[in-house]
């Protein structure tokens, strides 16, 4: 889902116009941002109060990278190698995303509910691996990954487009006869994303931040089961976030090992532990329903991912990235 954090991840030197487009959707009226959800939770009912576990998601809307960071570069050849590798990775993911998603949208257009349901989580994998970066190109994030804010906008509001609207049609309405336009729209947006790739120039800081913001994504939406609240396929997304973060980190690891061997070691361990925490919920090639995750395992996931986020927060410092 689009979050302010990702929107602020402006450490990617892309055309200024695209940057502005990314900011312009900050009106956020139809979409759920973590800033707005934070304030609405605090706004009254005791059930949603910040003192309960449910209200505890602490999205720090002030984090992320400002436009000042756009012009980053590096003298460290190890870092440069990571940047090049990550650029290639993002391109691969976006290209694959268009094809993966077409399997899903084709099923929707064919009116095949079961096939569409099966293709829904797989279609999102590549998106979730690179979301903080991809969300910077054009207005993609808002168009493909927004969700109706409960009680503010109807889930069937025409302003809400993309995966989660289709998720609602599939799992709640159980009727996709009228969903063809949504499917077409999703394809179009992702093609626009693909077309924006040549303008994407990734900076060293964006690689590091990309990793930590993917883990933030986990803490913001997935760990609460909010992201895929109808299909409960959150673990697919969550795992994809981890894969994306791991890719960026792995690319940076040679540089981190040189700068701060201790941090490098801790990161390796933390990723292994994150995988271990997820392992019990693997189901063939996919993932079990998030509803199957016990409370104590949700705690374990929260702990592992928060620890990982703290460590990743030190990577730009260790590498002196700016």
């Amino acid at each position: 889902m689009p979050s302010t954090t990702t929107r602020r991840l402006a450490a990617v030197a892309i055309a200024a116009g695209l940057l502005m487009a990314g900011c312009a959707k900050d009106d956020g009226s139809a979409t759920r941002t973590d800033c707005s959800s934070g304030s609405s939770a605090a706004g009254g009912s005791s059930a949603a109060g910040g003192s309960s576990a449910a209200g505890g998601a602490s999205a720090d809307c002030g984090t992320g990278i400002s436009k000042d960071d756009v012009a980053g570069s590096t003298d460290d050849p190890l870092v440069q190698k990571a940047v090049d590798g990550y650029q290639t990775y993002v391109e691969e993911q976006v290209n694959g995303l268009v094809t993966d998603t077409k399997v899903f949208t084709d099923a929707v257009r064919a009116g095949d509910v079961e096939a569409a349901k099966a293709a829904y989580p797989t279609s999102r994998q590549r998106w979730e691996r690179i979301e903080p970066i991809a969300a910077l190109i054009g207005d993609t994030d808002g168009a493909v990954d927004s969700r109706a804010e409960d009680g503010v906008k109807d889930t069937e509001s025409p302003e809400v487009t993309g995966w989660h609207q289709l998720e609602y049609d599939l799992w709640v309405k159980g009727d996709i006869a009228d969903s063809k336009d949504l499917a077409d729209g999703l394809d179009d947006e992702l093609q626009k994303l693909q077309a924006g790739l040549p303008d994407l120039k990734i900076t060293p800081l964006a690689v590091a931040k990309g990793a930590s913001e993917l883990i933030e994504e986990v803490s913001e939406g997935k760990i609460t089961g909010e992201e895929d609240r109808y299909s409960h396929t959150d673990l697919w997304d969550l795992n994809a976030n981890v894969e994306g973060a791991k890719e960026a980190t792995t690319l940076l690891q040679p540089a981190i090992k040189k700068a701060d061997p201790d941090l490098a070691k801790k990161l390796d361990t933390a990723f292994v532990e994150a995988d271990e925490a997820l392992a019990p919920y693997k189901d063939g090639n996919g993932w079990k329903s998030y509803e199957d995750v016990s409370d104590s395992d949700r705690d374990a996931l929260k702990a592992k991912f928060s620890a990982l986020a703290e460590m990743l927060g030190d990577v730009p410092g260790a590498l002196k990235l700016s």
């Binding site: 003192s51 309960s52 929260k302």
Partner: peptide, 10 residues
């Protein structure tokens, strides 16, 4: 953070 998960607070 790696070990403590907030349960409730007042």
């Amino acid at each position: 953070r790696a070990n403590l998960v907030l349960k409730w607070m007042v």
